[in-house]
């Protein structure tokens, strides 16, 4: 069941990328999205591609894992690639056969957009594959801390997210069990008239909601008993530590941004 969840597709490991602080990785990925849009010519896109390959190598994740999880996206990417090739009508004609004409500009645009997308998707996927969901939540909580000044309940939101993440697999199993139980009683979700099928969803959702609410009540009681009193003054079980490697990772993205700006102007 868990393999459906990319969030749960975290692969434990001990590579350079795995050991990075989640804060550094989050900063890196968000900065990466910005610098990807700086690229506008062959040199810049080539630099981005090399940078991405380096990241994948450093994470020691097998290319198979990356590509396997991204099949639907790769199909969409191929579709846009061909859309650009066949519908952009600028530049010299490279190929002509009956009604198919491929222009130089179309090919260029198609390749550029595909590369932009490929690097974006690979880098973000590397982050989810090398960081556990709970560390991503911890990292986000710390990074969003300044927003507390705007009276945003960052601690509570992060706590809710951690609780959610903890219970998603449980509730997924439960959904599966209830589905099987109702099927055993003769409920049918896959055939019959639409009206009947819509009705068949209700006996599935009622027990799910009831059980989720019951779990929430039990959990609240358990938290109360253990003396949960909100964010102020709470100590942490999982501590985040910033190392030199984290600074290197953040600096590398700054350098990459500078390189891209240079290549954009002078190549």
């Amino acid at each position: 069941m868990m393999d459906k969840l990319i969030f749960g597709r975290f692969i434990p490991g001990d590579s350079f990328v795995h050991r990075l602080d989640p804060r550094a990785k989050l900063i890196f990925v968000f900065a990466f999205i910005f610098i990807v849009f700086i690229a506008n010519n062959t040199a810049t896109y080539a630099a981005l591609l090399i940078f991405t390959i380096l990241i994948i190598l450093l994470s020691r994740i097998k290319l198979y894992f990356l590509i396997n999880g991204l099949k639907p996206i790769l199909i969409l990417m191929a579709f846009t690639f061909f859309l650009h090739i066949f519908f952009t009508k600028e530049g010299d004609i490279l190929y002509h056969w009956k009604f198919i004409t491929i222009y130089e500009e179309g090919l260029r645009q198609g390749i550029f957009i595909s590369v932009r997308f490929l690097v974006l998707v690979f880098v973000t996927t590397v982050l989810t594959l090398t960081t556990s969901p709970i560390s991503i939540t911890d990292g986000m909580e710390v990074l969003l801390n300044p927003l507390k000044k705007l009276k945003l309940p960052i601690h509570e939101l992060a706590l809710m997210m951690s609780i959610s993440l903890r219970f998603i697999p449980t509730l997924m199993d439960e959904t599966d069990k209830i589905m099987k139980a109702q099927t055993a009683r003769g409920s049918d979700l896959t055939s019959g008239p639409i009206k009947e099928r819509i009705k068949a969803v209700v006996p599935l959702l009622v027990p799910l909601f009831v059980s989720a609410f019951k779990r929430a009540e039990d959990l609240a009681t358990a938290m109360e008993v253990r003396g949960y009193r909100g964010g102020e003054g709470r100590t942490r079980y999982r501590q985040l530590k910033w190392h030199v490697r984290d600074t290197i990772a953040v600096l590398s993205i700054v350098v990459m941004g500078a390189v891209l700006i240079y290549l954009r102007k002078y190549s």
């Binding site: 509570e156 706590l159 809710m160 997210m161 609780i163 959610s164 993440l165 903890r166 219970f167 998603i168 449980t170 509730l171 997924m172 439960e174 959904t175 799910l208 909601f209 989720a212 609410f213 779990r215 929430a216 009540e217 959990l219 609240a220 938290m223």
Partner: peptide, 15 residues
């Protein structure tokens, strides 16, 4: 209770 209920409904949404 609000925190846990919100979290559980969010989890149910994802499930």
């Amino acid at each position: 209770t609000e925190i846990t209920k919100t979290a559980l409904v969010a989890a149910l949404y994802v499930a």
